[in-house]
């Protein structure tokens, strides 16, 4: 019983997104495609932060790994986009594993700073190899190279469906992960590391695995972003892009599978709406964040889940 409710809800959301493909006006159609891609990134962040308690400030490094892993292959080696997408995912996972090996020796604030430093080094590396990356200006992936098999990623309709497919895979894997025994160990690690250690789990291994999965997600999102929207640039690997998924997750609800998507969606429309009504739109964004933590500190879905009591967790794992 427990599982079916959550599964029904998540499948319902996916069905709704599929319906929007036919119903949404074209402006929102393109936006939702982009939001789904970025939501994969936020989901990855959530696996590390929301479930395992690893507050990283350096995820832009992993997003950037996917972005450049895919982008440089296509741009310089004329690689097939499918291959590039896979390479981007692996680059994100591999880099997360490597960073994890070192950074997970620390915890708390030190972990934040170490990840931040690694990401900053990554960002500067992109600039340093400007002759390949064109640094901050970045590179445009030619349209002809953006073909996933016979699927033309520069076409709005195809892009939406590919984004939805990747998003659906990521979402369902996320759901399966958090309901698996390993998912429970991740949460146990977040709640009480000492106790889980006594239960026989190695915190380092668990966290490293979670971080690597998080890296795979981030890499997928970065690679998909580059191939779908045709742009690969250092700005997308800068520190703002480490903060972004954190905001999405905290807004939507940390430790909920749907939270990252909801957060990305609301954040986008908040900025979009604010900038249409006022020049001072950063003020609106800032005030919204402050009000959010004051009145819904667990994020939207987190708050709903807490209010709903025992039944909440059945719907929103």
């Amino acid at each position: 019983m427990n599982g079916t409710r959550a599964l029904a809800l998540h499948l319902g959301v996916l069905a709704l997104l599929l319906a929007l493909h036919f119903l949404a006006p074209s402006y929102h159609h393109t936006n939702i495609a982009r939001i789904m891609v970025l939501a994969i990134y936020a989901m990855g962040y959530n696996i590390a932060f929301g479930y395992t308690g690893l507050l990283s400030l350096g995820h832009a490094l992993l997003f950037g790994a996917g972005l450049y892993g895919a982008g440089l292959l296509v741009y310089h080696a004329d690689a097939h986009a499918t291959l590039a997408l896979i390479a981007g995912v692996l680059a994100g996972g591999a880099l997360a594993f490597a960073v994890g090996l070192l950074a997970l020796r620390t915890a708390g604030v030190a972990f934040m700073i170490v990840t931040l430093m690694f990401a900053q080094a990554g960002y500067l590396t992109i600039l340093y190899f400007g002759s390949y990356t064109r640094g901050d200006e970045g590179i445009v992936i030619p349209r002809a190279a953006r073909m996933l098999g016979s699927l033309d990623l520069s076409d709005d309709g195809t892009r939406y469906l590919v984004a939805l497919t990747l998003f659906a895979i990521a979402l369902l894997c996320n759901l399966a992960l958090v309901r698996s025994p390993f998912g429970r160990v991740m949460v146990a690690m977040r709640e009480n590391e000492e106790r889980s250690r006594m239960l026989g789990y190695n915190p380092f291994t668990v966290k490293l695995a979670a971080l690597t999965v998080s890296g795979l997600y981030s890499g997928l999102s970065g690679a998909a972003y580059g191939l779908m929207f045709g742009y690969v640039g250092a700005g997308l690997a800068s520190v703002q892009y480490s903060i972004l998924p954190m905001l999405y997750v905290l807004l939507g609800g940390a430790g909920t599978v749907l939270g990252p998507f909801l957060g990305a969606l609301l954040m986008f429309y908040l900025i979009d709406y604010a900038s249409s009504v006022t020049d001072a739109h950063q003020f609106v964004t800032g005030a919204a964040l402050v009000l959010l933590v004051l009145f819904a500190p667990k994020g939207i879905l987190g708050t709903i889940r807490a209010r709903a009591g025992a039944r909440g967790a059945e719907w929103l794992p």
């Binding site: 064109r134 901050d136 200006e137 970045g138 590179i139 445009v140 992936i141 349209r143 520069s154 076409d155 709005d156 929207f229 045709g230 742009y231 640039g233 250092a234 700005g235």
Partner: peptide, 13 residues
């Protein structure tokens, strides 16, 4: 320039 590079592909599409 980076905004141009990020935006131009979308304008083309």
């Amino acid at each position: 320039s980076h905004v141009v590079m990020g935006s131009a592909p979308r304008a083309g599409e």
